[in-house]
């Protein structure tokens, strides 16, 4: 674990192994989550696009991916403390 930002709006957590494998989870604007995994690269190389079928919309041609727009009583902002406490 290299760093933690325990900010209320934009929490983030960073971890890295000795060899340089790293993971990062950050919550961005309006609750959008960003997950990033990196491997150490010996040599610069092309990374191909995923060939598997997407299970979510690809938002073709959109500059900005829409922020989360589904309300969850449990996860969304404004959920009661009690609901949060049960987790």
């Amino acid at each position: 674990m290299t760093a933690i930002n325990n900010d209320v709006d934009f929490p983030a957590i960073y971890a890295r192994t000795q060899d340089g494998f790293s993971v990062r989870l950050r919550i961005g604007g309006k609750g959008q989550a960003f997950f990033q995994v990196d491997t150490p690269c010996v040599q610069e190389s092309e990374v191909l696009d995923s060939t598997s079928q997407a299970t979510a919309p690809l938002y073709e041609g959109m500059e900005l991916i829409p922020r989360p727009n589904i309300h969850s009583d449990f996860w969304s902002a404004g959920a009661s403390e009690e609901a949060g406490g049960r987790s």
């Binding site: 290299t2 760093a3 933690i4 983030a12």
Partner: peptide, 16 residues
């Protein structure tokens, strides 16, 4: 990036 997005006051990463 946080500063650029106008949230500079939230930059307070602590060593873990």
């Amino acid at each position: 990036a946080m500063i650029v997005a106008g949230e500079g006051h939230k930059v307070k990463q602590e060593s873990a």
